[in-house]
C-alpha cells in the first residue's frame, strides 16, 4: 500500500470515529461537544475528499470509494440547511451517526486513488450529477431512519415529530434527486446521443424517484397519508438497489454506468 493510501486509511478511521463520537455526544445531550466533534470529523472528511481530488486531478467521483467519501461529506451541510431553513435542530445525531456508515464502507473498498476519468466522463455534468445524487441519498438515509424509528417505537403516539421531519427532509432529497436525474439525462444527451437509454441503473433511478414523488403526494393528501410510510420504505429499498446492487450484481449490470 502506498504511503498516501495508508494515510487516507488512518484519516478514514479517525473521521468515522469522531463522527460516531459526535452523534453520541448529541444523543447524551452534549450539544456543544457534539457540534465541535461533528465539525472536526467533517474537516477530516473534507481533507480526504480534497486529497482524492488532488491525487486524481479531477472531481473525485470516479468509483464507489470516491463517492462514499462525498456521501459522508454531505451530511453536515445538509444538517445545517435543515437546521436553519426548517428549524429542525434535533436531527444532528442522526446526521452524525449516519455519516459514519459511508466512511466505514469506504474502508473496505478497493481504494483506487489513482483513478483517471474516461473521456465519456469529461463533461461539466459529471460532478453535479454525482454530487446531487449523493446529497439526496444522504437525506433519504436520514429520513428512512426517522421513519423506521417512528414505525418501531412511536407509531401509536399522535404527537411524534419524526414523520413530519422525515417529510421535510425528503422534500429536499427529491429536489437533489430530480437535479441528479435531470442532469444525468442532459449529460447522456451530450455524450451518448440520447437522454434516456433504458439502462438498468436509469430504470432503477426512475423507480426510486417516482416512489419518493408518490410519497410526497401521499403525505400531503389526508386520505392517502397512511400509505406514505410504505412508499418511502419502498423508495429507500429502490435507492439501495440503484446505488449498490445495480453495480454489484452482474444480472442487473448497467453498461452505461459501468464507470460508477
Amino acid at each position: 500500500m502506498a504511503p498516501v493510501e495508508i494515510l487516507i486509511t488512518w484519516l478514514l478511521i479517525f473521521g468515522a470515529g469522531v463522527y460516531f463520537l459526535a452523534g453520541t455526544a448529541f444523543f447524551l445531550g452534549g450539544n456543544r461537544a457534539g457540534y465541535g466533534l461533528f465539525g472536526c470529523a467533517w474537516l477530516v472528511n473534507a481533507l480526504v475528499l480534497v486529497m482524492n481530488g488532488v491525487i486524481c486531478g479531477h472531481p473525485p467521483f470516479g468509483n464507489m470509494y470516491h463517492v462514499l467519501i462525498f456521501l459522508s461529506f454531505s451530511f453536515l451541510p445538509m444538517c445545517l440547511v435543515l437546521h436553519f431553513k426548517e428549524k429542525q435542530d434535533w436531527l444532528h445525531l442522526y446526521f452524525a451517526w449516519l455519516a459514519v456508515v459511508p466512511l466505514v464502507g469506504a474502508l473496505f473498498l478497493d481504494r483506487d486513488v489513482f483513478w483517471r476519468r474516461a473521456p465519456a466522463l469529461e463533461s461539466p455534468w459529471f460532478a453535479p450529477h454525482v454530487a446531487a445524487y449523493m446529497i439526496s441519498y444522504a437525506l433519504a438515509g436520514v429520513a428512512f431512519v426517522l421513519n423506521a424509528r417512528w414505525f418501531v417505537r412511536d407509531r401509536y403516539r399522535a404527537d411524534d415529530r419524526c414523520p413530519g421531519a422525515a417529510y421535510q427532509i425528503l422534500r429536499l432529497a427529491v429536489v437533489f434527486m430530480t437535479l441528479g436525474l435531470g442532469s444525468g439525462a442532459l449529460w447522456a444527451d451530450e455524450v451518448w446521443g440520447g437522454y434516456w437509454s433504458w439502462d438498468r441503473k436509469e430504470v432503477w433511478s426512475l423507480i426510486t424517484w417516482l416512489l419518493y414523488v408518490v410519497h410526497l403526494h401521499c403525505w400531503r393528501t389526508p386520505s392517502l397519508r397512511r400509505g406514505a410510510f410504505w412508499t418511502q420504505f419502498l423508495g429507500f429499498i429502490a435507492l439501495l438497489v440503484t446505488f449498490l446492487l445495480v453495480n454489484l450484481l452482474p444480472q442487473l449490470a448497467s453498461f452505461l454506468h459501468s464507470y460508477s
Binding site: L210, V213, V214, H217, C218, T221, S223, L224, G227
Partner: peptide, 8 residues
C-alpha cells in the same frame, strides 16, 4: 390525486 398515485 388518487388516480395520479394509482397511475404512478
Amino acid at each position: 390525486m388518487k388516480i395520479s398515485v394509482f397511475l404512478t
